[in-house]
Nucleic acid binder design. Structure first.
Lengths: 116, 116
DNA sequence: TTTATTGTTCCATAATAATCGAACTTTAAC
DNA sequence: GTTAAAGTTCGATTATTATGGAACAATAAA
């Protein structure tokens, strides 16, 4: 900490900007829903009740599933996924027609560490 | 979890709304600054470099200090403090002229638990 | 090769949030 | 009592975000 407030250190500032992005991404109920959904799916890769394909690599068909679950247009869903991705909370790669999404546990760790 | 997505359980929903409020409160750089400032001050109650009065009860004069640090008007600062308070992240009580603010560690704990 | 599905991008609009100045209340200091 | 300081609230403005429709590209299925 180089000043009274601890607000002006360069690395701290960088970290803070990342954190703001992460918090902003989770500050919409819709996006938090999506995030929790992916988080759960990622953790239950062998869940027979989920009608999406869950592999070690991530979750397929998540866009369509997300649309079904939360009554938003395809394009809005796309925007939300993109924001979660920009914040570093998830990674999406395309396999065939559908996107394979995965929660980035490093980002989750970053928030946790901030709060300690 | 009572459905495939885990999104519709009542208590889960309530918790989620609280979390959204918390994340929203921390999703502005200004408010994150304020929060970190209070957090640091709360933890260094005997910090001689801080020109605020830090007691076991919290941090006094934080509004003025916040104004000095971050080039925002008094009324904007007031709004930001209020939002942190509404999200349950801090508590403010008035003693004399100034507000005594304190970080609510239960809220911090709630986020941490969400991420586990 | 046509058709359907998946997700993206562009564009416009509606909804929210951030910000400030000014008028105000309460407490403290003179 | 008068003046100063700390915060609040109101009202207006500006900036940002959320959203959906339409046109699009890429892949899969027929």
């Amino acid at each position: 900490m180089i000043d009274k407030t601890g607000l002006f250190d360069y690395h701290e500032t960088m970290k803070k900007i990342e954190l703001v992005k992460i918090f902003k991404a989770l500050s919409s109920e819709q996006r938090l829903n999506i995030f929790i959904m992916l988080y759960n799916w990622n953790q239950t890769t062998s869940d027979a009740t989920a009608d999406c394909f869950c592999s070690e690599e991530g979750v397929e068909k998540c866009f369509t599933k997300a649309c079904d679950c939360m009554d938003l247009s395809r394009s809005t869903i796309s925007h939300h996924f993109k924001e979660l991705e920009n914040a570093g909370l998830i990674t999406c790669t395309r396999i065939g027609q559908s996107s394979v999404c995965k929660v980035n546990m490093d980002a989750v760790k970053a928030i946790r560490e901030f709060l300690e």
